[in-house]
């Protein structure tokens, strides 16, 4: 397979914050429509990696390629212009605004030639966009703060998809969520995969859920990749075994 077919590729990314080496050279690639799950403990470097991919941090060394072309992101907005959108854990939703206002935050639709918001059009398009990927909310007019964590996460994902993101970075989309809510989000992710037009990278803590939904997984520990493979060819047991081995390594050093 030639490189040009990768939607996103990272080569030997390192990141140093002062004295701290957060990443020791991580590489990854993502085909169009493919989903990668990144697993690892807190502080392993998952979030740093995500922030480099979303343009928030610049890598110390290493290179990023979008559709085979080398890119250097200068800002989150710059990365966004390449279709890379991060759905943050703290959700960029405004609780006191309605569902459809949130869907069109900073992309508001105005009446042609007038400075006034076209509420009706935004409401219609938001309802369409949500229905399109099978997200159910009681009403387009309800304040987002009234919705459950799962519904809010779904709206945040729907907004990224509706703004023509081609590569979605999901930062712990299943954190702090009950089983029913989590399965709703997993179902949403599977529907997006089935459509095949977005690639996704998901950071998560739950090994079983991640193996279930992602095409391939990567294990990040202490800033290095300790495992990489197809989800179908590995298991929770194997991954936990690697984590344990690594942990023993640390205790021996001490």
């Amino acid at each position: 397979m030639s490189e040009a077919t990768y939607a996103l590729e990272a080569r030997d990314i390192t990141k140093r914050f002062g004295q701290v080496q957060a990443l020791h050279g991580i590489s990854l690639n993502l085909k169009p429509g493919e989903m990668l799950g990144i697993l690892g403990d807190n502080g392993a470097g998952k979030s740093t990696l995500m922030k480099i991919l979303s343009g928030f941090h610049a890598p110390t060394t290493g290179e990023l390629l979008v559709k085979g072309k080398k890119v250097e992101f200068t800002s989150v907005d710059h990365a966004r212009s390449f279709g890379i959108e991060c759905v943050y854990q703290d959700l960029a939703l405004v609780n006191t605004l309605s569902v459809y206002h949130n869907m069109f935050l900073n992309r508001e639709i105005l009446y042609q030639g007038l400075p006034f918001l076209n509420h009706r059009k935004m409401r219609e398009l938001a309802a369409e966009a949500l229905a399109d990927i099978g997200v159910n909310v009681p009403s387009m007019d309800i304040e987002v703060g009234m919705l459950s964590g799962g519904q809010r996460q779904a709206i945040a994902i729907a907004r990224a998809v509706a703004s023509h993101a081609r590569i979605l970075l999901l930062d712990e989309p299943l954190a702090a969520m009950g089983a029913r809510e989590a399965s709703m989000i997993i179902a949403l992710i599977e529907r997006l995969k089935a459509r095949g037009d977005v690639s996704m990278i998901m950071i998560a803590h739950n090994y079983a859920q991640t193996l279930d939904v992602a095409d391939k997984v990567m294990l990040v520990q202490r800033g290095t990749c300790t495992f990489e493979g197809r989800s179908a060819e590995t298991s929770v047991t194997e991954l936990l075994e690697i984590v344990k081995r690594e942990y023993r390594g640390i205790t021996h050093e001490v």
Binding site: V76, Y88, A92, V94, N95, L105, N106, P115, L117
Partner: peptide, 25 residues
């Protein structure tokens, strides 16, 4: 407040400053 981008973004700036900034406001 209710019918212009200025009003909507004023609400967003107070309701979730981090989120609004992430959305580019």
């Amino acid at each position: 407040l209710r019918h212009t981008r200025w009003g909507l973004q004023t609400i967003a700036a107070g309701g979730n400053p981090t989120g609004a900034a992430e959305a580019g406001i």
